[in-house]
Design a protein around this nucleic acid. Structure first.
Lengths: 128, 128
DNA sequence: AAAAAAATTGACTTTCACGTAAAAGTTAAT
DNA sequence: ATTAACTTTTACGTGAAAGTCAATTTTTTT
C-alpha cells in the first residue's frame, strides 16, 4: 500500500507552490497517479521533484531537466541520438565546471565584502 | 590617454549583444563615458562587465549584482545597513555553497548518464 | 448530511533579461 | 562625398517559470 503524498505535503516539504508542481506535471517532468482527479504522489515523484529543484537551483531550464530525466527512463536507442546526447553531456560538464569556478571566485569576493563591512563597523563603533 | 573600448569590441570579447550592455547601463551597473552620444568603455567598465557576467552565470539577478557592486563603490555608512548587508552576505554564502553541492551531485549524475550511453553504444556496436 | 478544508482546472498576469525593429545620427575608409 | 559600418534612442515583443484569481469539484471533519 506504499505511502503516498498529497500535493500540499510536498509543497511544504520543498517550499514550492501547488502551481509549481502542477506546472512540472504539465511539462511532463512528473506523472503522479490519480484517485479521481486528485493527484497522488509516490516516493518516485518525490525523488524526481528533488532532482528537478536541484536542477533549477543551478540554472537548468525545464527542458534541460526533462532531457536528463528522460535518459534514465529511456536512453536513446539510435546511434546519432546517443552521440548527440554525449556531446551535450560534455558541454554541460564544462558549463558546470565553469560555474563552480565562478562560485569559488564569488565566495572569495564575499569574504572581501564582509571584511570591508567589519572594518567599517569598527570605524563606526569607535566613534560612538 | 588610457585605452578605451567601443561597445562592439566588448560585445565580441564577451559574446553578448549591444542591447545587453546598454541594458546594464540602464540598470545602473556600468557608467561608460560619452563622446557625444557614443559610449566609451574604459578598463574599469570592462572589468565590471566581467563581474556582471560571472554573477549572471551563477544565477544572480541584476539587482543582486547591483548590490554587490555598490558595496565596493560605497560601503554603507549606517550601522543598520551594514548589519543588513552582512546578513545578506551570509545568506549568499550559504546559497552558493548549496549550489556547489548541487553542481557536484549533478556532475556525478552526468558521469552516470555518460556511462549509460557508452554501455548502450557498445550494445549497438556489437550488433552491427 | 452539512460545513469546512483542500484540490482541480483554466485563464490571465507578472517578472526577468534581454530581443527586435525602426528611424536617425556618427565615424572611418575609399 | 559617398558608402559602409557602427551607434544611438524609443518602444514594443518574447520566452521561461511560475503567480494569481475564480469557479468548481473532492475530500475530510464534525
Amino acid at each position: 500500500m506504499d505511502k503516498y503524498y498529497t500535493i500540499t505535503e510536498l509543497t511544504r516539504e520543498f517550499g514550492v507552490s501547488t502551481r509549481t508542481l502542477r506546472f512540472y506535471e504539465d511539462e511532463g517532468l512528473i506523472h503522479p497517479e490519480r484517485r479521481g482527479r486528485t493527484r497522488l504522489f509516490r516516493a518516485a515523484d518525490r525523488h524526481l521533484i528533488k532532482e528537478i529543484l536541484r536542477g533549477r537551483r543551478i540554472g537548468f531550464t525545464i527542458s534541460e531537466i526533462r532531457e536528463i530525466i528522460q535518459v534514465y527512463k529511456d536512453p536513446p536507442g539510435e546511434m546519432g541520438q546517443l552521440q548527440l546526447l554525449m556531446r551535450k553531456v560534455g558541454e554541460k560538464r564544462d558549463e558546470l565546471r565553469q560555474k563552480r569556478r565562478d562560485i569559488d571566485e564569488t565566495l572569495a569576493e564575499l569574504d572581501n565584502v564582509e571584511e570591508a563591512c567589519l572594518t567599517r563597523l569598527a570605524e563606526i563603533g569607535v566613534g560612538t
